[in-house]
Structure formats: structure tokens, C-alpha cells
Design a binder for these strands. Structure first.
Lengths: 164, 164
DNA sequence: TGTGGGGCTTCCAACGATGGGAAGGTCAAG
DNA sequence: CTTGACCTTCCCATCGTTGGAAGCCCCACA
């Protein structure tokens, strides 16, 4: 079947399928006479596996390991379990980080009148001269990107005139 | 003061300070005769503000808005509060997503013996033929990146011989 | 048989925030 | 004057994903 069909039934976009192939996560697809990639049920099965793993927050690199564990019929279930538990720990750390943010923000927001007067403990908390807070996470990227909004991307910030 | 000093006392790396300037988040820094960027206490104050906002999970774009709210002495505290509450909602959504992952993974892990036998409900859950699960989040990037491991990247997976 | 539209191909760029590093200028202490 | 720490600009990489351009392929319909 064509890549579009495989994409539809696996839930992985054609773009990503090509990307996974390119990076070596999946083997190079067979080709039809036309040059089109050709997928069978086993391929789609693997793609669905990948998609589920992504949905559970595994990185592509980790999915490579999971695929290895999947196809390794001699590996112990303990190996898989350890891998999963390790990942769960990472996820929980991430949750804890976000939870800390939420707690801080809610505390600030609780003290904010939220009326039409200008003084605001939220902004003051950010602007605060004293404590600095610089070593809360001295070397943690922490990122975790966006996720909610799927629409409205495009031309992010190219203006370069902000406080200017 | 030089950028290095400003970086140290604000907690924002020199790289990021230049990046923020380049993208217009902060105005162009003054320059010394040498061509070095020159920062005063107000600049550092703003950088610290930015850093705290980052630590609370705001994107650079949002921080631009926060800086606007900060310097706008006529805006209502309700505006700031609404902005913060909106952000809190996004964070909670993110937490909920991660929590769902954790729950799924823990369920799978609970059913896994974790011994030296090969059969493993975790892998089977990912490989599962039936339900598909494809429409749990039909169009959600969901990403949220890495966070724990900072070392070990490089040459991700270029082998292209995996299940091959 | 021609044609149109959709699918496929590859390649290149962008997103966001950050770090690494090269090539070169500046400064202060020895 | 040299040395080393700092600064400058510029480019590249990360990670997963999407968008788009230029060009080929395929099928259905007239």
C-alpha cells in the first residue's frame, strides 16, 4: 500500500514516516515500480507501535530501544519493565516541575485582587528585587514545549520591535 | 557592566541574553567604546524578571507580553491575573496529559511480571492489534521535549538496520 | 487519447530555546 | 609584551513535526 494509506491507518503522518525511515528508526521501505514506498501490514503494525509509544511520551530514541525489545524474543520482561519504570520516573519529575510552577503561580494569583487597580503581586513577584531565586534549577533546561494549541502557529515573532 | 557579569547576577546566560536582544524581547544593549555590550541595574532587573518568568514556564513570546504588562503602569491587575490564570490552565492541561501517560504506563507495568520470562504486557500493549487507540489525541503534537538527561546525544540512529 | 487533480518523490526551511564552537577583537594582570 | 579571560559575530546542532516547492506518477473521466 502507499504511504498515505499506511499513514491513515497507523495514525502516523507521511512526513513522519519518511522521517523515521531517514533517521533509521524503521528500515527503508520497499518500493513499487513507480518509486512509491510500499507498506504491508507488518509495517503498519510497527508504525502503530511507534505511535502508541510516542503517545506515551517516549522519545524517538527510546522508541528505537522499545522496538529492539519488541523484536527480541529472548529478552526478559524485567528489561521492559525497568525501561518503563525509568520512563515513568522521568514523567513524574516533569509533572512535579510543572506542579511547582502551578503552585507558585496560584499563590501569586491568590494574592492578586484582579480588579482595575494596577498594583499586582504577580508582576511584583516576577520583578522582585531580593531573593533572586537563581539557583532553583541551576542547570535544568526544563522546556517541555507547547502542546495545547494546535492552530495558530505561523509567523511567530519576526517583528523585532517589542520594547523598542 | 559586561554581559558576563550581567549573566551571572541575573541567572540568564550570555548566549540567551544576546538571543533575547536579537529577537526583540529586550531592547538593544548599550555599547562600551570597545563594542562590548553594557548593562546597568535596570537591565539586570529585567533579565531577572525574564528568568523568573521562564522558570514559571512562560514562553518567550508570553514573556514579551508580561514585560509589556510590567511596564504599563495603567493596566489593571485583572489583566495580569487573567494572563496568569490562562497560563495555569495550560500547565494543568499539560500535567493532565502526562498524568494520563503515567497512569497507562503504570497499569501496563503492574501487569508485567518483571521476571526473566519474555512475555510482557507492556510491549504487548504497545503492539496490540485491536483497538488502535489512534483517536485518543487525533491532532495533538503533545511533545514537551526531554528534560532529564543532558549528556549523551550525538549520532542518534543512522544505522537503518533494525528489524532488518 | 488527453487532461486534471490528487498522491507521491526529494529537498529545504521553520518552529523554540538553548548550547557549542570558530575566528577574531579587547582588556587587565603579570 | 604576553597570556588568558572575556567579548564580538556567525554558523550549526538539537528534537519532533509541519509547510512548501518542484517535479514525477496514476487513475478516472471526458
Amino acid at each position: 500500500m502507499n504511504i498515505g494509506r499506511a499513514a491513515k491507518i497507523s495514525g502516523v503522518s507521511p512526513k513522519m514516516i519518511r522521517y523515521y525511515e531517514q533517521t533509521g528508526l524503521i528500515p527503508k521501505a520497499a518500493r513499487q515500480d513507480s518509486g512509491y514506498r510500499d507498506y504491508d501490514d507488518a509495517d503498519v503494525h510497527r508504525l502503530r507501535f511507534i505511535r502508541r509509544a510516542r503517545d506515551l511520551g517516549f522519545t524517538v530514541e527510546q522508541i528505537g530501544e522499545l522496538l529492539g525489545l519488541w523484536s527480541d524474543r529472548s529478552r526478559a520482561s524485567a528489561d521492559v519493565k525497568a525501561f518503563a519504570l525509568e520512563h515513568i520516573e522521568r514523567l513524574k519529575e516533569k509533572m512535579a516541575e510543572i506542579e511547582a510552577m502551578v503552585r507558585t503561580l496560584e499563590t501569586l494569583a491568590d494574592h492578586c485582587h484582579g480588579d482595575d487597580r494596577p498594583d499586582c503581586p504577580i508582576i511584583e513577584g516576577l520583578a522582585e528585587e531580593g531573593g533572586a531565586t537563581p539557583r532553583l534549577q541551576p542547570r535544568e533546561p526544563r522546556r517541555f514545549g507547547r502542546s495545547g494549541g494546535q492552530s495558530a502557529r505561523r509567523h511567530a515573532a519576526s517583528s523585532s520591535n517589542r520594547t523598542h
